[in-house]
């Protein structure tokens, strides 16, 4: 079922450390109840594609909130704030997890909410999604789209801001996990995905992985050469079905 009418607007939410965060929130028009989704952008920032993806999920019936992870560096345009965040070494994992928790609370407070909340993220947002699903209570479904550095090959890559390899938290994962990956991707490589899948399997976690031939990293992005229409169409269908299965 799709919803052609929707409301999309800027909202505030109570973020990590009690900060007031800004987010883009799109939901189907009508009283609901609608399941909620937190959508986490990739490192280049809170861009137009992130807004489009937020509206796409609303179109399919999910009240979706996309927090601006770099709002603390503002004011400024999203690309300028992304540059500032990059200069600062990126955002800390604790802060992102706190911001996701704030967005989950926002969703559950809305009159149109059904009380279920999923999390989805792309690229570094996929990694953040995995982290949030391992560290937060109340995540009902998680979708990791080609999150890199979930598996950390070189421990020297761990930093005070990103001190733990997410794969090491797999034992704490409580939500069912959907993972989408391109077999031509280098990070996560097929070997990284193998390692994550082995870990999930050995710990008895609920997961569903789909690996696409002929696709690399970020194959959903229609404005980039890496876009793969067939794989992207199938991938989006997997995302929508997975969220409906676990959040309706």
């Amino acid at each position: 079922m799709s919803y052609r009418g929707m409301i999309a607007e800027m909202v505030s939410f109570k973020a990590h450390n009690g900060d007031t965060g800004e987010a883009y929130y799109a939901r189907p028009s009508g009283a609901g109840p609608f399941p909620g989704v937190v959508l986490i952008h990739h490192m280049p920032g809170w861009d137009d594609w992130c807004m489009e993806a937020t509206r796409k999920l609303a179109h399919f019936g999910f009240a979706t909130i996309a927090p601006h992870l770099y709002f603390r560096h503002g004011p400024g345009t999203p690309d300028d704030l992304a540059a500032k965040a990059r200069t600062a070494g990126g955002v800390a994992d604790d802060q992102v997890v706190g911001d996701v928790a704030g967005c989950m609370a926002f969703l559950r407070e809305q009159a149109e909410a059904n009380g279920k909340v999923g999390v989805i993220g792309f690229c570094s947002g996929g990694r953040h999604t995995f982290l949030a699903a391992c560290r937060l209570e109340g995540v009902d479904a998680a979708v990791d789209c080609w999150g890199g550095n979930v598996v950390v090959d070189d421990p020297s890559q761990l930093t005070p801001q990103r001190p733990v390899a997410p794969i090491d938290l797999t034992g704490k994962l409580q939500a069912p996990l959907l993972g989408l990956f391109g077999n031509d991707d280098k990070n996560p490589s097929p070997a990284h995905v193998d390692k994550l899948e082995e870990t999930l399997k050995s710990l008895g976690k609920s997961y569903e992985f789909h690996r696409y031939d002929g696709a690399g990293h970020g194959f959903f992005a229609a404005d980039r050469p890496g876009y793969r229409p067939e794989q992207a169409k199938d991938g989006w269908q997997k995302v929508i079905s997975f969220f409906h299965k676990h959040l309706d």
Binding site: M43, P44, G45, A82, A83, D223, R224, P225, G226
Partner: peptide
């Protein structure tokens, strides 16, 4: 600041970005 990553605007999978600050 110089980095090679997904761009914000250019229609490329990865771009060499320079921020003159």
């Amino acid at each position: 600041n110089v980095y090679f990553d997904h761009p914000y605007h250019a229609p490329l999978d990865h771009a060499l970005s320079i921020d003159f600050m």
